[in-house]
Amino acid sequence: MGYAINFGQVFEYLPYLAGGAWLSLQIAFLAFCGGLVLGLLGAFAKTFGGPILRRIANAYVVFFTNTPQLVQIYFLFFALPEAGILLSSYVAVLIGMTLNAGAYLTEIQRAGFSSVRQTEMEAAETLGMSRWQQVRYVIVPHIARVLFPPLSNHYILMTLGTSMAAIFGVEELTGRALNVNSETFRSIEVFTITGVMYILVTLVASAILGVAGRALFRAKMRIV
């Protein structure tokens, strides 16, 4: 059985697919922001919390980082209704990705916290800085500089991760690719173009984050 490659028909759908890519970026951004907050709470709990709080944060991280995001979302989407909680596919995906991101971002941010060295604090103290000034001028800039590259990397990975929203019928880039595929049956072309669009989207995102990181935080960027 031969298959003649023909991109022409699929190119007509480029604007439609581009719209999907925009949605992918939005989902990744929302889930990332939610995950950042969750991760901040988790990192605080793990760094400064008491034994119980620490254990809870730890269990959260260990569970979510050792199970697949897809099955986590399956659970939210199919199992929660059994408890009377109905989520739309978009919301289920968003919550699932946020919870998952929160676990990974807890670990990343905790590592960032622990990179603040005692000597730096002592130096700040000898300069006569108040507690608040130490936080404002020493700790936060330091943490931002250390955290920006790994957070950027995770954001890029999450952008790729949004493709699993398609499985739940969300019409982001992969979801729209599935639609185009069932209309045109030009499967190889559709998914190749989709792949290229993911490459372009993440390259642009990497470039923007790289410039931002160097300009804002003088971070040493080496992004995926």
Partner: peptide, 23 residues
Amino acid sequence: ESFRRIPFLVTLFIVFYAFRGTG
């Protein structure tokens, strides 16, 4: 450089349909 920027799901579809296409 390219396959690290394509979601695994999309790679799966590409490979899957490539196998089907070539028979």
